[in-house]
Design a protein around this nucleic acid. Structure first.
Lengths: 194, 194
DNA sequence: ACCTGAACACCGTTCAAGT
DNA sequence: ACCTGAACACCGTTCAAGT
């Protein structure tokens, strides 16, 4: 005799994300997710293989959201420098909204928890485009990597409290945007050195 | 009647670091540490308050090692651009040697696991100095933050496998060094924009 | 003064038995 | 076909009892 479904994979992932942000990764227990979703813990295993897979699904959902946010931010400006700034600010705002989920994107961890490569690539497409517009097509990949590396590192350090001492953090972020935009635009200069 | 000490805090932290690198954070169990150190798990609580403190001690030991490595790398070159490159390469080499420990430095986590702010500041002194030499004293902090943010982000992404697609990663890292060195040196240019 | 066995709470996961 | 109680292995941690 069939039993009505009392939850769904989507609900489990959504609740998992809330729990992750509220209680941290250690607070993301199968028991806690089950409680909030209205079933007993063993029932979760009908929807996800195990906790590692749940972590991966949460990470991928976060990546998808981030990609959406970046695509929206890229809709406004038309010149490359404004686009870079808009994307960087959207990136940072998103990380502040979902710090724990954001961290999982590039965190090491058991293999089963790591997001698919495709998800990461898809979400970073807007950035690859603007990098091409800024630094030229054959420098696009290097420029995009430099930009994301900087933004990602800045935000990781900020969230870890490494910028607590001295100075306006918003201004420091703006300084980085200016510095990198200028540098990646000035292709002759960058190539003359090294 | 006193009992001879069968281990030490130093041995526990050293074994903990090995275990962390070999098995990941999830493999760093009190049981596994106790086995390798030659005592039973409850004895560890005579040396560390709990597992969170052990994680913190491991992180701080890693930070100290990193600072040492950076100080050694800074001993050679005399001109600012060569110094930046030497520090960046040493930073990356260290991260490749201790990826799990490196990640803990800026990872979120239970409060008890986070390293002291002093440890982070002390280890980044060499970088603050070269940033000053490169960008001028009043831009030193911003420049140092931009450099560490980029290097840290680059390495996080690299270790997370986000650079698997396309291109020579070593060359991409060198590209970033060149780009940032040039940009932080060219103070007029950076200030003219934005 | 440090060490250990025993015990407790908690967690991930499996599975037989329910509907 | 999904749900649950019971059970198992494992983990962090405490503590009384040893030496």
């Amino acid at each position: 005799m069939p039993t009505p479904e009392r939850t769904s994979r989507e609900a489990i992932v959504a609740v998992g994300r809330e729990l992750l942000e509220a209680e941290g990764l250690a607070g993301l227990t199968m028991q806690a997710v089950a409680d909030r979703v209205g079933v007993k813990a063993p029932s979760l295993y009908k929807r996800v293989r195990n906790r590692d897979e749940l972590v991966r699904l949460i990470t991928e959902a976060t990546i998808d959201d981030l990609g959406e946010e970046l695509r929206k931010a890229a809709a406004g400006p038309t010149d490359a420098p404004s686009l870079v700034a808009a994307l960087a600010l959207a990136f940072r705002a998103f990380a502040h909204r979902f710090p724990a989920g954001f961290h999982l994107i590039f965190a090491p961890g058991p293999v089963g928890t790591r997001p698919s490569y495709d998800a990461i690539v898809a979400s970073s497409l807007p950035l690859l485009e603007v990098a091409g517009a800024l630094a030229g097509p054959e420098r696009a990949l290097d420029a995009a990597r430099t930009l994301t590396a900087w933004a990602n590192g800045f935000i990781s350090m900020e969230l870890a409290g490494a910028f607590n001492l001295g100075g306006d953090v918003d201004e420091a972020f703006a300084f980085g945007i200016r510095t990198l935009t200028t540098a990646l635009q000035a292709r002759e200069v960058a190539q003359a050195v090294g």
